[in-house]
Nucleic acid binder design. Structure first.
Lengths: 247, 247
DNA sequence: CCCATTAATCATCTGTGATTAGTGCCACGC
DNA sequence: GCGTGGCACTAATCACAGATGATTAATGGG
């Protein structure tokens, strides 16, 4: 069901690109030129389906043309495809774990989460503040016990993003936080950053409680700046060239 | 090849969730409970494949267990799945076109692109500046002719993101720019914003030429702020409730 | 002795590709 | 001007490969 939809999309695209009507043979050749190697009968079958669904119509004898509905569907497909491609590109960038990309990632997180923190300062609910208080004290207790506090860190940042009431920022924070290698590294340097992370978070939370957007933004900015500096030092220590072995 | 990988993932997950060994019959039942309806022999075949690839091993007679490699692969699968889910959530948010989401989107773009502009001011190459010059003059000419200048707008912002040398920011800009309804609306209000867009862009470009990060950030911030204000006015005019009819 | 598991065999179903029939247009030659 | 062969297209038929499911050994443990 998946790749067939893909094939049909390709066929629609070819028909749209071609001026005038076009038939199975020519479509087959063009598909082949695109690297899609299918037989002509299959193209015919897909064409029958597309015709049945009203996306193409027979134009006399010399082949088929797009209907308005087909053009419309294709436009929607294109938009979806562009979205998917952009998303995939971002995911690929996020998957990479070399030094520069980790720092790039942190720089992006810094501006995004700083804005989220500023917004949160004006929009946060008492309920959310209570939740953050709980997270923070759990994190402090965990770090004191020698744990990493990673879970609480993630939860804290997520709560702030959620409190910003900006769904796009919230989604972005969630997405950018899904980086395995980054989490691993924070794990490794937790001895250095664990306790300071709690202090940083407390400062952010205090700004939220004071409903001071400026202070919240500054606190979050500083938090992620120092994290980036730590990361940079850590990576520099183990691999000056920036090519830490990851996979 | 696709759904089979999916099925195998499900099977791995079930084995991992189950304490101790588990066989085809029980896996089949659990799969069925998940809504995946496959026959027991198929489960057996997948298990053979997984065993051949070293992800599971036979545990005596009572079924199969995960190997270390299987556990590792599953962990990787989980990370990938989380990434995909987060990405899909963001795409869903971006797909929505109501007033609040459009403004959220613009707010996110504002901080991201402002940072990109600031970085670009220090990293931009003469080459890129020349390219932006070209884009800008084409846009000015187009707007003077009564066109929307939308293509050039997109290209300009993309160039700035690229000049920031931060791939994450660049991907984010590309992703956030893929919003059909937003582009449609800008099209609709181009009479109001078309010429001012050129002025804004010129101001940004001037800051880049002066290699002044502060000015670049401020110019971009202002550009997207006014755009948001325009959008807000436009949406307010046509639908005070924020529920513009889309698609 | 019964049960769960693995694995093999056989039938079926689906999708695909090769081939072929049927149809109308076009160009060429008379 | 008209018949005729070539050509592109549609669509049907047949065969084949692959996956799936039902059934059935075969094995070992409670």
């Amino acid at each position: 069901m998946k790749e067939r939809l893909d094939l049909r999309e390709d066929i629609l695209r070819i028909i749209a690109a071609h001026s005038g009507a076009i038939g199975q043979g020519a479509i087959n050749l063009l598909l082949r030129k695109q690297g899609v190697l299918i037989s002509m009968p299959t193209v015919g079958r897909r064409l029958q389906e597309l015709e049945f669904e009203g996306f193409v119509a027979k134009a006399g004898i010399e082949g088929r043309v797009l209907t308005d509905r087909g053009r419309h569907a294709l436009k929607r497909f294109d938009a979806e495809a562009r979205l998917r491609v952009s998303g995939a590109a971002l995911l690929d960038t996020l998957r990479r774990g070399d030094r520069k990309h980790l720092l790039d990632l942190l720089a992006a997180r810094r501006v995004i989460e700083a804005e989220a923190a500023a917004l949160a300062a004006t929009h946060v609910s008492p309920n959310a503040i209570a939740k953050m208080d709980g997270i923070l004290s759990r994190q402090a207790a965990g770090v004191a016990r020698g744990e990493t506090g990673l879970e609480e860190d993630i939860a804290f940042h997520r709560e702030i993003a959620r409190a910003s009431r900006n769904e796009v920022l919230c989604s972005l924070v969630a997405l950018l936080r899904q980086h395995r290698r980054y989490n691993l590294i924070v794990n490794s340097i937790r001895a250095a950053v664990g306790s300071r992370m709690v202090v940083d978070h407390a400062r952010i939370l205090a700004a939220l409680k004071a409903r001071d957007p400026h202070a919240a933004r500054a606190a979050m900015d500083r938090h992620l700046r120092t994290l980036a500096a730590d990361l940079n030092r850590y990576l520099g220590r183990w691999s000056p060239d920036g090519g830490v072995r990851g996979r």
